[in-house]
Simulated assay, not measured.
Amino acid sequence: MDICRCPPRFSRYDIIKVSLSTRKLSWRGPAVAAGKVYLVGAGPGPADLLTVRGAELLRRADVVVYDRLVQFEVLALARPGAEIIYMGKPVGSHASRQQEINELLVRKAQEGKTVVRLKGGDPFLLGRGGEEAEYLHEHGIDFEVVPGVSSALAAPLSAGIPVTHREMASAVVIATGHEARQEPGRLDWGALARIDTLVFLMCVHNVARIAARLMAHGRDPKTPAALVQAAYWPHQQVVVAPLDKIAEVAEEAAIQPPATLVVGEVVRLHEKLGRREAAPLSQEAEAAGPGLSL
């Protein structure tokens, strides 16, 4: 005869008692889907120089984190109700807020939000975007990098200076101006002195040192140079002088950051190409004639 051994019956009280005696009870709220961070290049300033992709992401973002090189007309593209957070540093301050920015991006993404980190120019060109991307990766945060128009190219262009030219320049180097005061630095000044066109960012307070280093390594003191202040901003200003005089001329003109230094024969074209100021888009479309659009 088979004997059926049925499990003993427990009351609801017994089950709760056993559970409490064998493990801790914990309560977790509803799982929050992880958000995503977009490192977006804001370009040189005006909203119409922002990429289409960048504008689209701004309209979708829950949070926008921006620095001081972003114009308000770009921020105006953000959707109503978005959280707008300024994380720039004062002009002339060398204190870094990078760790604070990194932690903020991770925290907002962990709250399940779509975050746009809006950076002037291009995120991966002297903008610490690489560091932010690394931090997001290390903390398991999904991210995407959206390129922007860098001032390294936009600033010379705004002054009518092509950084390459078939008859004048076959190569261009973009470098930080901060290292001019460092001994030793990572820049090879001897190699830089031989490059056709040089573009220095973050250089206003080191123009004299940059010029001195280049000339000390063989660059002709009469090489034309230009300093472009605030390209595509209302207070844009351009000064041009020989390399051995550019620091003096910039000081007399009270050039302020942000500014871009261009060194090379292509600067001579500023006189010819820098005179034409861009017409507003509405005027260009009107000039194209009825039925045409640009």
Rank of each mutant, 00 (worst) to 15 (best):
V106G: 07
L136W: 10
L20C: 08
E277V: 07
F200T: 12
Y86I: 03
L25G: 11
I16A: 08
T51H: 13
L25T: 13
V262K: 00
T223N: 09
H235R: 13
V40M: 05
E83F: 02
V263W: 05
E251A: 15
E183N: 06
R28E: 13
P258L: 12
H178D: 09
T176Y: 01
E103T: 15
P257V: 09
L192V: 02
L69V: 11
P147C: 03
A154E: 01
P80L: 06
G185Q: 01
G140K: 12
V262P: 04
I101E: 05
D122V: 11
P162R: 08
G140A: 03
E132R: 15
E284D: 02
E277Y: 02
K113Q: 15
E100P: 14
R209Q: 06
I161D: 04
I16F: 03
G35V: 04
G29K: 07
Q71C: 09
G177Y: 12
E248P: 13
V249G: 07
P156Q: 05
A191E: 00
P80E: 13
S158P: 02
P234K: 08
E83R: 15
I210C: 03
S21V: 05
D142C: 07
V18K: 09
A154K: 05
V40W: 01
A253H: 07
P90C: 08
V267K: 04
D220A: 09
E286K: 05
R23Q: 13
L187N: 06
A212V: 08
Q182F: 06
R68P: 08
H270M: 01
L136I: 05
